[in-house]
Design a binder for these strands. Structure first.
Length: 457
RNA sequence: GGCGCGGUGGCAGAGUGGUGAUGCAGCGGACUGCAAAUCCGUGUACGUGGGUUCGAUUCCCGCCCGUGCCUCCA
């Protein structure tokens, strides 16, 4: 079962071959915990969750590492402006992040290292870089010397000259070269800081990932993922640090990047007021609908996140759960080949989703109970491969918008019974009145061969 | 200025050198007391100008339009 992945390093789809035939190591850049996760933060989480599930299926053993950046100037700034302590802020934000991503059915990574727990490892790498002549101390900072690495810029395909031509760099006076970037910077007394050979300070952004990846996955590992925007400078600098500290050994063999998210055609921004947080969206739509929306576009394509898209995704899930509803109870079967093939082709989730539609149609068209059960099992397996259809169908149809005034289920059942009696007495006006009454409260009735079922619209 | 990505039917969104996915929306039909759900049928597409080819939406070149990154934004 070959897996092909688009490797940013070579800008083409490549056959994936792990370093070890029965184990895969994957590192994905995680959140800086200073604010609530927005829909753009959720895309890589969901995309790499699908990849994680697929890798586990194909190789059995996977070590998935996703870090928590809990030391950063944005955190310091936020703490200062809000008055909340850094520790409380990062703890609270991390908890919320876990809850939000869990609601999107994202599995927890195997290891979730925190930057503040790896300061010693960062210092060790920096020391090594200084010793090897790839970094230098200046004015309380330690900087990586970009000119010391002849093939710097391979991932982002930028030459040193091009970078200089960009010329939007605000050159700090202590830099030997404008491209040099910070590995360590000094902290004032009230800032978080750690003792180091260069004085009390804190790490630069890029070094965190180098240290945590090395610690948990080794010098060279299989897959490194993240958002497209991280290619430069973050991943480029990560590669520079790690390779120069490890005698030139490659960092990751496959670099996988997801595309950006826009909202209703606009780039997300707080001034435009189109900043959707996952937490808020979860009050309006089930997590699986948000997840499906994120998977409905290929991961490398730009994704325009819209309310219409959410509505469509919710409708698709209604259709699939409807197919799974009622007897016979589905039992997950083997993953249908077409779905597996779609996922193995560079994670073609939109194509996999079309197969889910076909599988749902097969359930509805099945003639015998045996056929139906088998078809349901296939649909379920296909959904689960995408991290969808993980709920009981009845629970899905009872989901309600947050804070809605809900009609009690017992009351709904009573009204359905009343309507049944009216229908049996051929009092259709009364039956329709009850149905309308329920519809006005968001309850949709469906009269089937096995009786009347209801769902929240 | 540099590096990069994309333009597919009313909408969303795959894919392919030659039988025009899939879903939503629309239309017609079956089923239903009427609906809903489901099933059956149905129309509309590949930014633009060249080139390669027996044949291009698919490969190559130009152009137009949109868009991302260029030191800490996923």
């Amino acid at each position: 079962m070959p897996l092909d992945l688009y490797n940013t390093l070579n800008r083409r789809k490549e056959r994936f071959e792990p370093l070890s035939p029965d184990h895969v190591g994957m590192y994905v850049c995680g959140p800086t915990v200073y604010d609530t996760a927005h829909i753009g933060n959720a895309r890589p989480v969901v995309v790499f969750d699908v990849l994680y599930r697929l890798l586990k299926r194909l190789y059995g053993s996977v070590t998935y590492v996703r870090n928590i950046t809990d030391v950063d100037d944005k955190i310091i700034d936020r703490s200062r402006s809000s008055g909340e302590s850094i520790e409380a802020l990062t703890e609270r934000t991390t908890r919320l992040y876990h809850a939000d991503m869990g609601a999107l059915n994202a599995l927890a990574p195997d290891i979730e290292p925190r930057a503040t727990h790896h300061i010693a490892h960062m210092i060790a790498i920096i020391q090594r870089l200084v010793d090897e002549g790839h970094a230098y101390a200046a004015d309380g900072h330690v900087l990586f010397s970009v000119p010391s690495m002849p093939d710097y810029g391979q991932l982002s395909r930028r030459s040193v000259d091009e970078l200089l031509a960009g010329a939007r760099i605000d050159v700090a006076p202590y830099k030997r070269d404008p491209q040099d970037f910070v590995l360590w910077k000094p902290s004032t007394a009230e800032m978080p800081g750690w003792d180091s050979p260069w004085g009390r300070g804190r790490p630069g952004w890029h070094i965190e990932c180098s240290a945590m990846a090395k610690e948990h996955l080794g010098v060279t590992f299989d897959i490194h993922g993240g958002g497209l925007d991280l290619i430069f400078p973050h991943h480029e600098n990560e590669i520079a640090q790690s390779r120069c500290a490890h005698s030139g050994a490659p960092l990751a063999r496959y670099w996988v990047h997801n595309g950006f998210v826009t909202v209703e055609g606009e780039k997300m921004s707080k001034t435009l007021g189109n900043f959707f947080t996952v937490h808020d969206l979860l009050g309006e739509y089930p997590g699986e609908a948000i997840r499906l929306t994120l998977l409905s576009t290929h991961y490398r394509q730009p994704l325009d996140f819209t309310r219409d898209g959410l509505k469509t995704a919710k409708g698709n899930l209604d259709r699939w759960y409807q197919a799974l509803r009622s007897d016979p109870v589905p039992a997950e079967t083997e993953l249908p080949f077409a779905v597996l093939a779609a996922l193995e082709d560079d994670l073609n989730t939109p194509l996999a989703i079309t197969h889910l539609h076909e599988l749902a149609a097969a359930v509805n068209k099945a003639h015998t109970p045996e056929e139906k059960a088998k078809a349901k099992g296939c649909l379920l397996a296909a959904g689960r491969a995408l991290g969808l259809l993980e709920q009981e169908p009845e629970a899905w149809f009872r989901w309600a918008v947050k804070d809605a005034a809900l009609l009690a289920e017992a009351e709904i059942e009573q009204l359905i019974a009343d309507r049944k009696a009216a229908r049996q007495a051929k009092d259709f006006a009364e039956a329709d009145r009850i149905r309308k009454h329920l519809l006005d409260q968001g309850i949709v009735l469906e009269d089937g061969a096995q009786g009347t079922t209801w769902k929240r619209g």
